[in-house]
Design a protein around this nucleic acid. Structure first.
Length: 421
RNA sequence: GGAGAGGUGGCAGAGUGGUCGAAUGUGCCUGACUCGAAAUCAGGUGUGCCGCAAGGUACCGGGGGUUCGAAUCCCUCCCUCUCCGCCA
């Protein structure tokens, strides 16, 4: 949620920002709701103050005396009035809060205008992307692919989108996880191993609820959701807390499986490893001082980029335009790896600065120099999503002999130079 | 899953219907004393909301109720602890 004072003072600027993001929300009625809420709260509190001072008098009076009983009779009316006004105040407050929660975060000035993904800016490209890969094939067409990643048995045991990784492939997945975690660690992200289910309060704080409920698997018995990304449990680690300003920036990384129902997106780009219901990912999360968050976004992106370089995978960096940026994001970069066999770009990371938007929802603050609590800025980014990286490795590093060369950086956990038949 | 106990300020811990936002201890900050420190003494020390401000109001796990008045009584949910059962 955005800063309410900003909303009150910069309505026109806010209107433009929302238009830039191609979101729509009725700011005029929001202004009215805010007005109504404040009036209702004032009215209720004034009445309540009167009731309290009368009660203070009564506490001095003799309990059963005629004056006392008379006062009780008088106060009954006021008590009813207070209750009514408090109910009204609560209702109008809730109405405002609900509407206010639907206001998207502001896109940063450096975010380009644009209507949708076609207007995203390619800010850099690394490696021999879209170059010459004469013998490349889509990873799912590699002859031994199905021997190492078993989709039919996944369908039997669970359903579509839950493959088994077998033998060396399983080992390669593990190597990637280890590589990503180790790199993150050496970049200053403290590793945490997190729950992979969360309650609705957590999912609301990071923005999955209420809008994107359909993306998550829900256990109705317990009222908990399977996480769509480690962002949710990791960011919520500090929910409703005030951290010491001296501890910022706080950097954490976590490996988790991620679960996405992907309802409605079936049928396209779903072959092989491109889109799964369960996948592994290492996530980087930062809590930083508001003055530094955009520098931190750049370094977060570089941390993710370095992984692709070490894996020798061509990639490009997209600066997401205002029209394509998500609801809670202020600025977002996507990293897309070149899949030489499919001849397309696969998104393997999304690095975002949420400024204080998530921090307000999650009520994560720090104590600044003046001793007053302020919302922190939160950032996160994938580093990286495993299956698509795996797809890119299989497609880009496929040899003439049909085997796939395993990048040097994984050798520590995957001892052989090649994977294949 | 069964039985019992309990959730109060950074922490510990009083308070069972009436100036209680809450005693006391401790921690932390400031000042005094000191060459400095310790000890001691004095003062300060939560968060949100409404308000230009003065100030008001809310919060004693969450929600609801009773009452003129609730940290205190009732209902309900959540959580923690102890014992039993079950499982790893």
């Amino acid at each position: 949620m955005i800063d309410i004072n900003y909303f009150r003072r910069n309505l026109n600027e806010l209107r433009e920002s929302i238009a830039r993001k191609k979101f729509s929300c009725d700011l005029d009625s929001l202004v009215e709701l805010d007005r109504a809420r404040r009036d209702a709260i004032s009215a209720a509190e004034t009445e309540r103050a009167g009731q309290k001072s009368a009660n203070a008098e009564m506490s001095q009076m003799e309990k059963g005396s005629p004056e006392f009983l008379e006062k009780v009779a008088q106060m009954k009316e006021i008590a009813t009035k207070v209750k009514e006004l408090e109910t009204l105040a609560k209702e109008s407050d809730e109405m405002f809060q609900k509407a206010f929660l639907a206001v998207p975060n502001l896109p940063h000035q450096s975010v380009p205008d644009g209507k949708d993904e076609s207007d995203n800016e390619t800010v850099s490209t690394w490696g021999d992307a879209e170059g010459d890969f004469p013998h490349a094939v889509p990873h799912y067409d590699i002859p031994w692919f199905e021997k190492m990643i078993d989709f039919p048995r996944g369908v039997k045991v669970v359903g579509a989108g839950f493959p088994f990784y077998l033998g060396d492939m399983s080992k390669l997945v593990r190597a990637l996880i280890n590589f990503f975690l180790e790199e993150a660690g050496s970049n200053g992200y403290a590793e945490i191993h997190s729950p992979i289910v969360v309650n609705s309060a957590s999912a609301t704080a990071t923005g999955q609820l209420p809008d994107k409920e359909g993306m998550m698997y829900l256990d109705q018995n317990e009222g908990v959701y399977l996480i769509p990304t480690a962002e949710v449990p990791v960011t919520n680690f500090f929910r409703d807390e005030i951290v010491d300003g001296k501890d910022l920036p706080i950097k954490r990384c976590a490996y988790t499986p991620c679960f996405r129902r992907e309802a409605g997106s079936w049928g396209k780009d779903v072959r092989g490893l491109n889109r799964l219901h369960q996948f592994d990912k290492v996530e980087l999360v930062k809590w930083v001082h508001p003055d530094e968050s955009f520098q931190h976004l750049d370094s977060l992106r570089e941390d993710a980029e370095n992984l692709l370089r070490k894996l020798e995978l061509p990639y490009r960096v997209l600066l997401i335009c205002a029209g394509d940026i998500g609801f809670p994001h202020s600025k977002q970069y996507d990293l897309e790896v070149w899949a030489a066999g499919q001849e397309k770009w696969l998104e393997v990371s999304s690095c975002s600065n949420f400024t204080d938007f998530q921090a307000r929802r999650a009520n994560i603050r720090f104590r600044g120099e003046d001793g007053k609590p302020r919302p922190v800025h939160t950032l996160n980014g994938s580093a990286l999503a495993i299956p698509r990286v795996l797809a890119a490795i299989l497609e880009n590093h496929l040899q003439m002999d049909g085997r796939v060369r395993v990048p040097e950086c994984l050798r520590k956990w995957f001892q052989s130079e090649f994977i294949g038949p």
